[in-house]
């Protein structure tokens, strides 16, 4: 299967000024990385406010997947800060070992993030 043809299932919804994007796949890996970037750009185009990436269903991420999440963060820019929520243990491990947990605001749950004001996401 060519990478460009790989499908990445996401759902996207607006919640209290946030855009919540839930990944419906269990892996963000080398096979899925490009499709993931394209899908999340499509899911967030035209919106405003910070974005929360709900990773609760994702049980594995590799360095390609991590790179794609960094690329999405760059694409969204500072105006639409990318937050992460509900990291499963082996996903959390990859973020910690690469020190990327210091770059992304990480929340235990989506609700933890949306209960706060989206106006000052950098304060969190």
């Amino acid at each position: 299967m060519q990478k460009g043809l790989m499908k990445m299932q996401l759902t996207s919804r607006e919640l209290g000024g946030w855009t919540v994007v839930t990944v419906m796949e269990d892996r963000i890996d080398a096979v899925a990385a490009i499709a993931f970037k394209e899908a999340i750009r499509h899911a967030t185009d035209g919106g405003t406010g910070p974005v929360i990436l709900d990773l609760g269903r994702v049980d594995f991420i590799d360095s390609s997947g991590l790179g794609s999440i960094v690329a999405v963060m760059k694409h969204l820019g500072r105006e639409r800060r990318l937050h992460l929520a509900d990291l499963q243990p082996n996903v959390d491990r990859v973020f910690r070992l690469t020190r990327m947990d210091s770059i992304f605001p990480i929340h235990a749950t989506v609700a933890d993030a949306t209960d706060s004001s989206p106006d000052h996401p950098d304060d969190r």
């Binding site: 590799d62 360095s63 390609s64 991590l66 790179g67 794609s68 690329a71 963060m73 760059k74 770059i103």
Partner: peptide, 8 residues
Amino acid sequence: DLPEGGFG
């Protein structure tokens, strides 16, 4: 400037 690779 954030790296998108080199983690492997």
